[in-house]
Design a binder for these strands. Structure first.
Lengths: 337, 337
DNA sequence: GTGAAAGCGCTAACAA
DNA sequence: TTGTTAGCGCTTTCAC
């Protein structure tokens, strides 16, 4: 291991000078800075993370708590995790991965061990057990998703309620009179993950306001679950011409089923998905969609904790405005036969 | 922050005693152990990770390098990452997440900073740039996937060549005479990620040995790419009745396309996927598949590095034997019309 | 079976 | 603009 002391000796300066060159916390003459940087490069020096953390009480690590579940769309989580990691690196931080297997006590462990300077929580439930611990330990944190009580917390999320509204409006604008929301698996609603309920609320409200008959059905990700959900919807309300899907795993199945049922998209039925853009463009026809901005959500979460570490108060909600991109899967409602 | 010294004072023992209670590196009387553990619990003590790393030169962290790409099946990666994290915790270690965005130099940074005691690399390419650095820094590491030169390395992977053989045999046993392998996206082959090429090699060899006409086509994950691939296969060899798919994103599309083309599965065409079990059981019909044991791959990788940290030599390959589970999507070859 | 004390490599006063 | 030095909280030898 190359140490800071060795760099100092090699450059003919004191250890503190090397430290300050690295941290930029005091001004250094151009000449010595050069020599130090030269020595660092020549010796291949990297500061010892533990020593640095011990001396400065800053680990330069952000803990990311991801869910173990696989019933929510995994690629979105992965995109968020990647976005968090690359953004964190850009701020000189690394990311420690924690799974919910460890339970809420992971919060205590991280807070008590100096393992991380901040935490980012994903898959936040309305009554999330980790939140009291967050408050109690006074941890720097950002949440992706909204709990019931957000007081004192910094949260980022897509404005799913607005997404529901946007979806309903799009279908209403196209003249649809009977619409259905094919949602997340039932387990997601049962554990009160906010996003699903908020989408539903927005969709219902606006559908009612626009005078559309509307239905909502949770849906699993398998082909059979999708088939069952679709057939139950069409049984209950055969005139349904507009479908909103908030379950990306069901998307390809739904398109296949409609095709098979002889319902052409978008001529006979419009499909609108709430999903990442790449899912939308990889379908056929390409899907009109409200995109889930995974990259931005991850980035914003990191920016929130970095701001807090810099002393700012970031308490509050960042609700990203949803955007709808019309692609080939939605069109004017067919005239009743 | 509660420190070890405070625990010692509270328990009326010396700091070293507390340390030894924690590490178990020397025998402690039952009485003092109890008192110390009591104090630890009462004060809510957690050892400071940085201090411990500094003093012991062991961070108790494993670095996990994941790819940024999204052209290989993301859920498998996620399952592996989760398996690694939970297994690592079981061994008292945490996981640091690194993306390939940082490039091969991430290896140098981790090795030089004491950030992690070991590294696990995913998405290993045949000529992976990180490997020379691994050798050069003498890092403790495990690879998930096989590079061209595995000398001195510890690797885990599914035996994809055997998987290809197994797939070919299954179709041959069912009497199929013309078969096709619908593979990973072309980019995967171009960057020489070993698994795709190894599957292909095994499949080709055994198909030839069993006297089956065989075709191989790379395939993107979109509906259109799948449709194009399928139609080109059927154009070139209309009598194809057996399909092996090594691209999970294409699976639902392929099933939809076959259905649409009036080819019943498994009566008219057999489909065999190389994919995780849950993808296979969520399709309709459920897919005969060679499973990708993500959980085991992650767990084995952690066990490899833990063994190395304990001083064992784990050099060598662990090739997990593939298992084929017959489900509803494969059956006897139809009699030629 | 237990304690005392010397660092581990770095940061950040304090001094100059 | 730079150097000196006292810790940060833990592990681990050495001593009893």
């Amino acid at each position: 291991m190359v140490t800071l002391a060795q760099v100092a000796r090699h450059a003919g300066v004191s250890p503190s000078t090397v430290s300050y060159v690295l941290s930029g916390k005091r001004s250094i003459s151009e000449a010595t800075r050069r020599r130090v940087e030269q020595s660092i490069a020549e010796l291949g020096y990297h500061p010892h993370a533990g020593a640095r953390a011990l001396a400065s009480s800053r680990s330069h690590v952000i803990a990311l708590m991801i869910p173990l579940r696989t019933d929510i769309y995994v690629p979105v989580m992965m995109d968020i995790a990647i976005s968090i990691t690359t953004t964190a690196r850009r701020h000189g931080h690394d990311v420690l991965l924690l799974t919910s297997e460890e339970g809420p006590s992971a919060v205590k462990r991280v807070a008590g061990s100096g393992l991380a300077d901040a935490m980012i929580l994903m898959d936040v439930e309305l009554a999330d057990e980790r939140i009291p611990l967050l408050r109690q330990t006074g941890s720097v944190a950002a949440l992706i998703g909204l709990p019931a009580d957000t007081s004192g917390l910094s949260c980022v999320d897509l404005d799913f309620e607005a997404a529901g509204v946007l979806a309903a409006d799009h279908l209403a604008d196209l003249g649809h009179r009977e619409v259905a929301l094919i949602g997340a698996p039932e387990t997601v609603y049962r554990r009160h993950t906010g996003f699903a309920e908020r989408t539903l609320a927005g969709f219902r409200r606006r559908a009612a306001e626009r005078g559309m008959a509307h239905l909502h059905r949770p849906c699993g990700g398998s082909h059979e679950a999708t088939a069952g959900t679709l057939s139950r919807i069409l049984e209950e309300r055969p005139g349904t011409t507009g479908f909103v899907v908030q379950n990306e795993a069901a998307v390809p199945h739904l398109l296949g089923l409609l095709r098979q049922a002889g319902r052409a998209v978008p001529e006979d039925a419009s499909v609108l998905a709430i999903c990442p853009d790449d899912v939308a463009v990889h379908s056929s026809p390409q899907l009109t969609s409200v995109s889930i901005p995974a990259e931005e959500m991850g980035r914003r979460a990191v920016e929130l904790v970095m701001a807090q570490l810099a002393g700012e108060d970031t308490t509050g909600l960042i609700l990203l405005a949803p955007t709808l991109t019309a692609r080939g899967s939605s069109g004017p409602a067919p005239h009743p036969a």
